[in-house]
Amino acid sequence: MLAIDRKQFAAGVRWWQTKTNWPNDFHNSDYEVLAAQNPDGDFRDSWWVGFLPRLTTWKALRPLSQADVTSKFNENRDYLARTWHEACAPVKDLDITDVTWDQVRMFPGVVAWLKPTKSGSAVFPSKFCHFLLPRVFPVFDNAAVGGSCTYETYFGLIKRVWEATPAGLQAELVAELSQLIEDDGRGPLYEDFPMATKISELALIGRRHP
């Protein structure tokens, strides 16, 4: 069953809050900071030096070093800028419900060049892209959702899970997650919080960690 199950969503929230050291505002405050820092395709060194530590903190680089990935970033900076403007800029005000993989695939494809893997792991490209457009690009974490898949497969799964969920339940889950964020007390709900991708992620976490 693709549609979100309320019990699975609750289990995902519980796992997030009790089994990780991730913030209980579900990165609400981080998303506001990331939006303010978004270079909109102007990938300068001054942006990269602030972005790289976040990738490290989210364990996206291992086993490579920051120097390894920075070298690849410098080699592919122009390609990143070009594909951002072609694929991402036109959809930056939308969310995953209004975007297809074919529209945006060029950008995560170039991002994957910065940390090439034999398996085509979704971890690095998903986290890099999620930091830039969290409402469009879902984040993949092995410990949370498990399994080995390409980013295209995961993107499609998140999109189908959300779209298969009845509109009424979608609205209820948005209200529930909004209240959890407000109750955390770190600040008001960020107006562009990525509800569709985050709620779907939490539901998949709950399926893996019932």
Rank of each mutant, 00 (worst) to 15 (best):
A112L: 02
R62C: 01
I158V: 15
S29Q: 15
A144M: 14
P138R: 07
L133D: 06
H27A: 12
G185S: 13
V69T: 08
R207H: 03
A35R: 11
P116H: 15
S121Q: 06
A144I: 07
A167V: 11
E201D: 06
S148E: 10
F137H: 08
Q8W: 05
T70S: 08
T20R: 10
A67V: 04
A203W: 05
A67K: 13
P125Y: 00
T83Y: 04
A11M: 06
N38R: 12
F193H: 11
K115S: 07
L169T: 13
Q8H: 14
S29G: 12
Q37A: 15
V123Q: 13
A81M: 10
D184N: 14
K92F: 01
G147V: 10
L133I: 01
V123L: 11
R14M: 04
F137W: 15
S29D: 11
D93R: 04
A122R: 07
D40L: 12
W113H: 13
D93H: 13
A3Q: 10
I205Q: 03
R135M: 07
A203Q: 02
F131S: 05
F124A: 03
D192T: 08
K59A: 07
F155P: 04
E152M: 03
S71D: 02
R62H: 10
F43C: 06
S178I: 06
S46H: 12
L180M: 14
A67S: 10
F107H: 13
G41R: 09
F155I: 09
A3K: 12
G120Y: 14
L2S: 10
D192F: 10
D78I: 13
P210S: 11
V99H: 09
G168V: 06
